[in-house]
Amino acid sequence: MNIVVCVKQVPDTEALIKVKADGSGIDEGGIKWVMNPYDEFGVEEALKLKEKNGGDVTIVSVGPARALETIRTALAMGAEKGIHINDPALEGADAYTTASALAAAIKEIPHDIVFCGMRAIDDDAGQVGSILAELLGIPQVTVVTKLEVADGKATAVKAIEGAQLVIETSLPCVITAAKGLNEPRYASLPGIMKAKKKPVDVKDAAALGISVAAKAKIVKMMPPPERAPGKIVGGEEAAEKAAQLVKLLREEAKVI
């Protein structure tokens, strides 16, 4: 079974995000870069499938030079090889362009299942997996919390509002991973050492033959609006505080 996992390097969830004064983007100084947590679920699921069914796991990532660390992280977890799509023209690429780059790279290699994270925690768009599936012409199941692969088809569980859907799809397909799919493994030290020697192909947009024109452009970034300071509800007894709060919520905030 040939499995491809798309990963993205993103700022750590705890990182301080400072918007540049000119609104052109965020200040990357001091940011700790990590693998997008949802992509980690994808890597883990791919490795589990490989361990069960045999085959290869290939990691594909679009990103600048530093993204190689993230590919190595996935290789340390146990993937076989990496494809690093690194092109300055792809910096800040929109979802369609990113998916095009990924699709171009993945089309060239055998793929029974392609994993993506359900969204990247930097742009929070959650589009790439679906666009990629469309560009590869294969079905998708997004936001998957459970997956079984057998007899040439995949059965995935997806949580929707108020219910769990069990969806069956033919292979190849794109699965976007959600929290709950698995617990990503901690890379072993020999894994980390071996990862340094595993092959990673570097490709640019020209090599992939894709257009880099963005269709959705960020024109300006800004920090979130400040919240007005709140008030502490006083009172002696718990009952008094609770009554006071309910009154405020009903009369001042009008939310209940």
Binding site: D12, T13, E14, A15, L16, K32, V34, E183, R185, Y186, A187, S188, L189, P190, G191
Partner: peptide, 27 residues
């Protein structure tokens, strides 16, 4: 180091130490 087989709480702690240089994972 060899088996990466240890408690999930401790794995989280180590990830936090790796990413934010403290066990709680605070920025």
């Amino acid at each position: 180091l060899m088996e990466a087989d240890f408690s999930p709480e401790l794995q989280l702690t180590y990830r936090n130490m790796e990413n934010n240089s403290n066990p709680w994972g605070i920025g």
